[in-house]
């Protein structure tokens, strides 16, 4: 392959990986945007989604995409319950309390999975795991494309929810100004529950969608996803959930090009450097509107 073909292939892979990162990040973007808490358990909820797909696959022989039907409502309920019984109690405490609470939740999820499934890495084998097709000389991975489509659908649905519905308006109002939202009669506690429920649901969906592609371990995978999700959130910016796609793609392209043309052992660092640069020089993110110097 000529240099330019390889470059295009790499960019395409970067964009597709970006879709994966966006998928992992979108739930966090929503939660962080509205509740302003660093949710350390986000990655663990993604892993929880992965294990639910593993479970449905082992027990019922379901394809991961089919198990979304069950995993999504369960994810939403889990989120609502966690918010109601844990996070809502610390929302008015010093901000680090919420961070700490999510750390505790993260430990509990990871270790509960360890006790139930054992420590062995898990994945679901699907027939299309390594399938590709080619567009204009560029090979596209089937599972990556499916994940990308899932990302677009989810973000479109979320966008519609936030902009076209009453509840979406309430969520946006709460995000902009919680006190103001209270004053115009919005029940912000309920909004927080819904938002966290949606956040966990999105995380679980990401996990289910990604299991044919990736792998899960009970305790080390979650932290990796959490970190990626934060990078995506900051790169994209907070004002707009659609920006998660931009953040994800930027991260994917930076990582893939860095690993392709520079030292691959520093792959994670390229994304983090981009993250720092954006944070310092464009604190509202690539497409965000709110300023982050709170």
């Amino acid at each position: 392959m000529a240099g330019i073909d390889i470059f295009l292939q790499n960019v395409a892979n970067g964009v597709l990986m970006g879709g994966v990162y966006a998928l992992i990040g979108i739930g966090l973007t929503l939660v962080f945007g509205v509740m302003r808490t660093i949710n350390f358990a986000h990655g663990d909820f993604v892993v929880l989604g992965m294990y639910s797909a593993v479970l449905f696959n082992a027990l019922l022989g379901w394809d991961p995409y089919l198990s979304l039907l069950l995993a999504m409502p369960i994810g939403f309920l889990t989120g609502v319950i966690v918010e109601r019984f844990i996070l809502s109690r610390v929302i008015d405490a010093p901000p680090e309390s919420a961070l700490l609470a999510t750390l505790g939740i993260s430990l509990i999820i990871g270790n509960a999975i360890l006790l139930t499934f054992g420590g062995e890495p898990r994945s679901v084998q699907v027939s299309y795991a390594s399938s590709t097709f080619s567009i204009a000389g560029v090979n596209v991975s089937m599972v990556l494309l499916l994940a990308g489509i899932a990302t677009v659908i989810m973000i479109a649905a979320l966008y519609a929810l936030l902009n076209r519905t009453e509840i979406g308006r309430a969520i946006r109002g709460t995000a902009e100004n919680r006190l103001g939202a209270e004053l115009v009669g919005i029940d912000t506690r309920r909004i927080h529950s819904i938002v966290f429920g949606l956040g966990v649901m999105l995380a679980v969906m990401a996990g289910v969608t990604l299991i044919p592609l990736l792998f899960a371990t009970p305790t080390n995978t979650g932290a990796v996803f959490t970190l990626k999700a934060f990078v995506v959130t900051v790169l994209g910016g907070l004002g707009n959930v659609g920006a998660a796609i931009a953040g994800g793609i930027l991260l994917g392209v930076v990582e893939v090009l860095g690993a392709s043309y520079f030292m691959s052992e520093y792959r994670e660092a390229y994304g983090l450097i981009a993250f720092l640069l954006i944070l310092l020089f464009r604190p509202e993110g690539l497409f965000g509107r709110t300023v982050k110097r709170v």
Binding site: I6, N10, N13, M17, S141, N220, S264, E265, R267
Partner: peptide
């Protein structure tokens, strides 16, 4: 001769390099 950090999920850049 390529190393990667634990937690990396996308090995395509390295594998494509090897293909060349």
């Amino acid at each position: 001769d390529q190393a990667y950090d634990q937690g990396v999920t996308d090995f395509r850049p390295i594998l494509n390099r090897f293909r060349g």
